[in-house]
């Protein structure tokens, strides 16, 4: 029996809780997350409102729960965009000749050198601020890290003797990419996806905080943080709850990434 590694378990549990929270929020939240009740503005945590209410009297717990949907949605779409572009690009760069490969990788570096947030703000300015533009911008900004990791993995696979054997049997390059290279870099894709997920969650929060992300009234952890600014001293809990939620989510995905990396490490696999 393989022993479970602690970061995989911890990461899995945290991510599981967030997913569960998002799912539950579809059928039940303590209150309507967007319901404004001026009579209970800035209420302290109580039995009625566990995390208190914000400046419009909305229930903070309900907002956090609904906000987790945004977080996961952003992560899934951003990572999806990054993987769908980055993985084929990485494999391509590993398989073509030297100069085209150099070109792909230098173009990659160019995107990598461009600050992700700036890209997202530009996108927001051009296409209008929305969750979707934020996600796509974050996704595009994450392409280079995918392409890089997948390329180095694919290069390793291309050097193996089973790829040589496939070539000697007459397999063409693209079938080799699909049949041999892709299956053998899936572990890298998984690891990179969970790490990118964490980055995307953080980036979405930052964008919403700056006003370029999820527009009101859809709850988002980043925007909750932004709205809490003016009460940072009078009601710090309004910043603490979404802040902690973001921190835990990022930690969860990073732990999951680390855990998966350890699990897929062939050196550890031998100790089965």
């Amino acid at each position: 029996m393989r022993r479970l590694n602690p970061s995989l378990v911890a990461g899995g549990v945290i991510v599981g809780i967030i997913v569960l929270m998002a799912l539950v929020s579809f059928i039940w939240t303590p209150y309507d997350a967007t319901f404004v009740d001026p009579s209970i503005r800035l209420a302290k945590p109580s039995w009625e409102h566990w995390f208190g209410t914000d400046k419009f009297g909305r229930d903070v717990l309900s907002q956090i729960m609904v906000g987790s949907r945004t977080t996961l949605f952003v992560g899934v779409v951003a990572v999806g965009v990054a993987a769908v572009i980055g993985v084929p690009l990485g494999i391509l760069a590993a398989m073509v000749r030297r100069w085209p490969s150099e070109f792909i990788m230098r173009a990659n570096d160019l995107v990598l050198a461009f600050p992700a947030l700036l890209l997202a703000i530009m996108f927001g300015a051009v296409f209008g601020a929305s969750t979707l533009t934020a996600m796509i911008a974050i996704g595009i900004a994450s392409v280079p890290s995918f392409a890089r990791v997948i390329r180095s993995g694919a290069l390793q696979v291309m050097r193996t003797e089973y790829v040589l054997a496939a070539r000697a049997a007459g397999r063409q390059p693209w079938p080799i990419a699909v049949r041999h290279v892709l299956p053998n870099v899936t572990s890298l894709i998984t690891v990179q996806a969970s790490v990118s997920f964490a980055i995307a969650v953080l980036a979405e929060a930052a964008l919403s905080f700056l006003g370029f992300g999820t527009p009101p009234p859809t709850p988002s952890w980043g925007r909750m943080l932004q709205e809490s600014q003016e009460f940072l001293f009078s009601a710090p809990r309004l910043a603490i709850f979404p802040g902690v939620a973001i921190a835990i989510a990022v930690l969860g995905f990073n732990l999951l990434g680390d855990g998966l990396r350890d699990r897929f490490d062939p050196k550890l696999e031998d100790r089965r």
Binding site: T160, E161, Y162, A165, A166, H180, P183, N184
Partner: peptide
Amino acid sequence: MSSLDPRM
């Protein structure tokens, strides 16, 4: 080790 695709 390397002459057989581990995923096949």
